[in-house]
């Protein structure tokens, strides 16, 4: 595989992670537990969407086949999407959404930070912008994981259940890719340190490692992704070639 196509795969994968995360977070709009939180979730969705657009645009350029961000977002089927499974999981209750965001941000922060120092100028610039946003997402999710974990009996039960439910999907984030500009396997220690500290403060138990579902980077997804894409793409696909 050429270096260019490796770079394309890597960039596309990150772009898809951000896009699907944005799509899920956007589903919360007008449904958050508090109006202030509605605004916060929309901000995070906007950050993810912004990163997705930069990454997909760059991926399209690397591919050199004339595809832009919208071609990549709207005209691929689920078997062609390269996002990790974690981001496509349904939102569940607020605890599940915070668990997903917490783990995603704890991965994206060291990832974008490392990317900011990589040799590829475009990716470095995207990393430099996105890492500040990820720091904010991690902060926000950590704050809620602590409040829900150490809040009421009910919130503790829900938060622990959410962590248990999402945890298996964490491992796929760190699948080794030595040829990539940043090898995700190198980010695991950072992730573990932060996650363990927050879970402990939240009086939550870090689940044991066991089942490790994966396949997102190869286009083998959960059943959920096809539905998500069907909704996201329906209008765009109904009007081939139209401008919006």
């Amino acid at each position: 595989m050429s270096e260019r196509s490796t770079l394309f795969d890597f960039t596309l994968g990150l772009g898809d992670d951000a896009l699907i995360a944005a799509q899920r977070l956007g589903e919360w709009t007008s449904r958050a537990p508090e109006m202030e939180e509605d605004i916060a979730l929309a901000n995070i969705a906007l950050d993810q969407l912004g990163a997705a657009r930069l990454l997909l645009t760059y991926a399209g350029e690397l591919e050199g086949a004339g595809r832009n961000e919208d071609d990549l977002a709207y005209l691929r089927g689920d078997r062609e999407f390269r996002n990790r499974l974690l981001v496509e999981l349904p939102n569940g209750d607020f605890a599940v959404t915070m668990a997903k965001l917490f783990f995603l941000a704890a991965y994206q922060l060291p990832l974008y930070t490392a990317l900011a120092g990589c040799a590829d100028e475009r990716l470095a610039a995207i990393g430099a912008k996105a890492r500040k946003e990820s720091a904010y997402h991690l902060d926000h999710a950590s704050l809620w994981v602590k409040r829900l974990g150490d809040g009421t009996e009910e919130s503790h039960r829900r938060m622990q259940a959410a962590v248990d439910q999402v945890w298996p999907y964490v491992h796929e984030l760190f699948t080794a890719d030595p040829a990539a500009p940043v090898d995700p396997a190198t980010l695991r220690a950072d992730f573990d340190a932060h996650v363990s500290a927050v879970l402990a403060e939240a009086t939550l138990t870090r689940p044991a490692d066991g089942w490790t579902p994966g396949g997102g980077r190869a286009g083998v997804h959960t059943e959920h992704l096809s539905y998500l894409l069907a909704e996201m793409q329906v209008l765009h696909r109904a009007h081939p070639g139209a401008r919006w």
Partner: peptide, 20 residues
Amino acid sequence: SRAPSLKRKAILLAKVQDEA
């Protein structure tokens, strides 16, 4: 969720957020 381009999606999200 169904905005027909990513740019439109971002603008609409920001708009609805403004309403909140």
